[in-house]
Structure formats: C-alpha cells, structure tokens
C-alpha cells in the first residue's frame, strides 16, 4: 500500500481484509488524515477475544482486562510493517509476551504506562528475567522447549507441526496442504516433535537438579 494514492475503503472491504492489511490500511489512513474509527473497531473486535484468552492464562483475573487492553493499544498504535498474517500474529505474540512480562515485573504499575521495549527486540532473556512467579518459571521452560523444538525443524515440517499439532487438523488435510509430505510423514514428524519437546524438558530437569 505504501506509496500508492490512498483510497478510503468501506465497511465490507475492510471486514474482508486480513489483519496485516487492516493494520497497513490503518497506518495509511492515519497518514492521510482519514477516519480510522471503523478499521480500529474491526481490529479490536477480531483480536480482543483471543488476546484476552491468551493473557488470561498468564495473569491474575483482576489484571486480564488491563493487560489485554494494553496489548491492543500497543498493537494498533505501533508501526507494523510485516507482509503476512503469520508475521502479524508472531508480532502480536511478542507484544502479548512483553506486556505479560511487564505486568509480572511490576504488578502494581499501570501497564498502559510502560512503553514497549524496542531496544530489546528479539531478546528472549529480557522477557525471561521479567517473569518471576512460580507458574511463569515453569511456563518459560516449556515455551523455550517448544520454541527450540520448532526451530530445529525445516519450514515444511514446522508447518506440519503447526497444522497437525497446534491446529488439530486431520493428517490427510495437512498432507494435502504441504507439498511432498505424505499422511504417514505427518504422523512421524509430529511424533518426533513431541519426543523432542519431552527430551528438552528432561534436559532442563537434569540441569536444574
């Protein structure tokens, strides 16, 4: 969209846009002095329920709404320049993790007043140090094991794990979506992933005792 003449879109067009295009449209609309109420409403509606669910797993009940609202505020007022829904979702995940970390670092601080730490882009250690409650410690071990097990896979196998393990799609459907992967391979790749996660968690147990 960048560089082209900005054209205001109607509700049906905006509603059909994938999230990363909506964010790009929002940035362009702001830069062109066009109303942003409708794209903001659509994004808030589309994102808030699952952001709230994700936050609810990591902070006390009384903090869920504040942290979730801060995630949305951060996401919609920052400059996202990714090119796909997947990149947008990964970026949103980073914001969610950081805002949860902000909360745990200082639960009494108004989380809306904590700027996103751009200087720590991609630095998992920063996120890790901030989470100190017991559940968070276990959660970080698990997240790191899952992240590492995923990173060790090639892109096709990562997609298989995403579709089969994390989206619970049938193996046949996964095989149909990923080139040169048979249904039997889907099962094998998923099992290797599970075994690797188990091994990594066992390694962490060994090093912590």
């Amino acid at each position: 969209m960048g560089g082209a003449v900005f054209k205001e879109k109607g509700e049906s067009e905006l509603a059909a846009m994938p999230e990363h295009h909506l964010i790009a449209y929002l940035l362009d609309a702001r830069a062109n002095g066009t109303a942003t109420g409708l794209p903001v409403a659509i994004l808030v509606y589309k994102l808030m329920s699952d952001v709230r669910r994700r936050v609810a797993m990591k902070v006390p009940a009384e903090a869920i709404d504040d942290v979730a609202e801060t995630v949305l505020l951060s996401a919609l007022t920052s400059n996202f320049d990714g090119a796909s829904v997947g990149e947008f979702r990964a970026w949103l995940t980073t914001i969610i993790k950081r805002r949860i970390a902000d909360y745990h670092r200082s639960p009494k601080t108004e989380v809306r007043l904590v700027p996103l730490p751009d200087e720590h882009e991609g630095d998992d250690e920063v996120w890790g140090r901030h989470a100190s409650v017991p559940f968070e410690g276990e959660a970080i071990d698990v997240e790191r094991a899952l992240d590492q097990a995923k990173r060790e896979l090639n892109p096709d196998h990562q997609e298989v794990v995403g579709l089969y393990v994390f989206e619970d799609l049938p193996a046949g459907e996964v095989a149909a979506r990923v080139e040169e992967i048979s249904e039997a391979n889907v099962h094998k790749i998923a099992q290797r992933f599970r075994d690797r996660v188990t091994d990594l968690l066992s390694d962490r147990d060994d090093t912590s005792t």
Binding site: R54, M57, L92, A139, L146, V165, F166
Partner: peptide, 10 residues
C-alpha cells in the same frame, strides 16, 4: 497453556 497459546496464535 503453551500449546493453547500456540493454537490461539494461529
């Protein structure tokens, strides 16, 4: 929690 989060991300 991590796996549900992974699902909700997608």
């Amino acid at each position: 929690a991590a796996m549900i989060d992974g699902y909700l991300e997608r």
